[in-house]
Design a protein around this nucleic acid. Structure first.
Length: 494
RNA sequence: CGCGGGGUGGAGCAGUCUGGUUAGCUCGGAUGGCUCAUAACCAUCAGGUCGUAGGUUCAAAUCCUACCCCCGCAACCA
């Protein structure tokens, strides 16, 4: 058996609507997973939801229910999105799973040598029953917008995790690449951030101010705060510590996170792992944010884009296509309905869809659907694989489209329809035509192979159409034109 | 001097580390060709002071200096 691989995604807070940022996590992880599986690796792929905390408890009370019943409903929103994207995950963890809760307690105990009691001081809103960051307090002028009251500076006793103890080890692991941070500039950014050392982190709250969470072992007055509970999911989902199977998968090969939470995954989380005596993840992939028309998505602006809507209107492969190719894997990207639809119509419909269509059309028309001997596609895939290894998925897809274009050029160049006219006049025309069309099919099949990680449905359709040596007609065309957010140029010209 | 990223034809980007053929690609625009195909495809053309000002060099988008502008971050925000 080949080495077992493991990839993780961040677990979103179950209170809230899934948005495009979450979708990106799942998509990137899924592309990598499918790519590795295509190369015969065993891949475990985790997704999940973070289900503890005050916001959930408060919301549940508001709705006249209890927190557990509430999250039992809301986590489904994420599960729906994940499935809709076609993410081939193997594990869905919820932080309210009994096994997770038990494991977190054990983890707490194992980390005992690095846990101490201290005072947490910060701006607190009695209405929210929660602390806000200094930044937030300053931005709002010291007044909570929801409750129209001043934040109070209060301090309370809770437990701290001595992350600072691991500063040097973590710095070293990052610098020497044992724990690789991708992209490189994020690595620099993070090393700069921790140059004066990691800060110790508050990992619990008094029970009176945080009711919904994992109880701290041996201290009924304290409940675990988010970090330890949530981050631990990456190993508890594998069965840590009681099911030894976790050792087959840990350390993770890649942990996919958004750039905003890189610091927790590159600092606190590795510190926890070192405290447990566990190896660090091999690679952390920090992707960027998706703006809309150059503007940050926000609830107050109401300019958020719903991934479900995109998938429902254009299909899952169209979604996967745009977000893998037109959103840079390692940097911020931009979405507008216009650019999305344009990419769909020109690249998926005109370039790829039409190429498949014209090849199947000619084979059906000239050769009654018989393809004959299909040669291996001969395009050099070095750049593609290199881009995949570097986690630059956008560049890998670019490479595939180079092939699509050159196939269209090839067809234009050899003009199969001209050759067809020579049949009966020229003795070699028939075999020449067969050869040309089979070559085109070979190219399409190679394109299909390369699209497996990105557009699984499309790849599958291409294979089914051609692989038997005889055209298998499929219902409908590949990527029919869609004009929902832009105008059809052919209806406005009159 | 807080840290990081960036400013290249209408839009989005590559090229900068390792200076050197006519600054490359996609979309958009114009013209032409073709007709197998989803009024698709193919070809050609138009369009750029490579943020600004200096400097180094036979030669700079690419190296050096100064400055301007934009974006993100500035730690418990799940």
């Amino acid at each position: 058996m080949d080495k077992k691989l493991y990839i993780t995604t961040a677990i979103p807070y179950a209170n809230g609507a899934p948005h495009i940022g979450h979708a990106l996590d799942y998509l990137l992880a899924d592309i990598w997973t499918r790519y590795q599986k295509q190369n015969d690796h065993d891949v475990r792929f985790q997704v999940g939801t973070d289900e503890h905390g005050n916001k959930i408890a408060t919301k549940a009370i508001e709705l006249g229910t209890d927190p557990q019943s509430y999250v039992d409903k809301t986590y489904v929103n994420f599960e729906t999105l994940i499935k809709k994207i076609g993410a081939s995950y193997t594990d869905f963890i919820r932080t309210t799973d009994p096994h997770h809760i038990n494991s977190v307690k054990i983890i707490w105990q194992k980390l005992q040598p690095y846990i101490y009691k201290g005072n947490y001081e910060g701006w607190y809103c009695a209405g929210c029953e929660a602390f806000v960051t200094d930044k937030e307090a300053t931005a709002s002028g010291g007044i909570c917008a929801d409750h129209q009251q001043h934040y109070q500076k209060i301090s309370e006793e809770n437990y701290y995790f001595k992350a600072s103890a691991f500063t040097d080890d973590i710095k070293q692991a990052i610098s020497n690449g044992d724990m690789q941070i991708v992209p490189e500039f994020r690595k620099k950014e993070f090393l700069e951030l921790i140059k004066d050392g990691l800060q110790d982190v508050s990992i619990s709250r008094p029970k009176k101010s945080l009711s919904w969470g994992v109880p701290v072992p041996d201290d009924p007055e304290q409940v675990m705060y988010v970090w330890l509970d949530a981050l631990a999911n990456y190993i508890t989902v594998l069965g840590y510590p009681d099911n030894p199977e976790w050792q087959l998968y840990w350390p993770a090969d890649i942990q996919v996170v958004g750039k905003d939470i890189l610091r927790f995954h590159a600092g606190l989380w590795p510190a926890m792992l070192l405290g447990l005596g566990l190896p660090l993840p091999k690679k952390i992939l920090a992707h960027g944010f998706i703006n809309v028309g150059g503007i940050k998505q926000s609830k107050s602006l109401g300019n958020g884009v719903d991934p479900i809507q995109i998938i429902d209107e254009y299909g899952v492969d169209a979604f996967r296509y745009f977000f893998s190719r037109h959103i840079p894997t390692l940097d911020d990207g931009d979405f507008t309905w216009e650019t999305f639809e344009n990419a769909y119509n020109t690249e998926l419909a005109n370039d790829l869809g039409n190429a498949v269509q014209r090849v199947t059309g000619m084979i059906t028309r000239y050769q009654s659907g018989v393809i004959g001997e299909i040669p291996q596609g001969e395009h050099d895939m070095g750049t593609y694989h290199k881009s995949m290894e570097n986690l630059e998925f956008d560049k890998a897809v670019d490479e595939v489209w180079l092939m699509v274009r050159s196939l269209n050029q090839y067809i234009e160049h050899v003009k199969p329809w001209e050759i067809a006219k020579q049949i009966g006049k020229d003795a070699e025309a028939e075999s020449h035509l067969t050869e040309v069309l089979a070559y085109a099919v070979g190219a399409l099949l190679q394109i299909g192979d390369l699209l497996v990680p990105f557009l699984p449905d499309t790849a599958d359709r291409i294979h089914r159409t051609f692989e038997t040596g005889r055209i298998v007609p499929l219902e409908g065309v590949f990527f029919p034109k869609i004009y929902k957010h832009t105008t059809d140029p052919h209806t406005t010209k009159d």
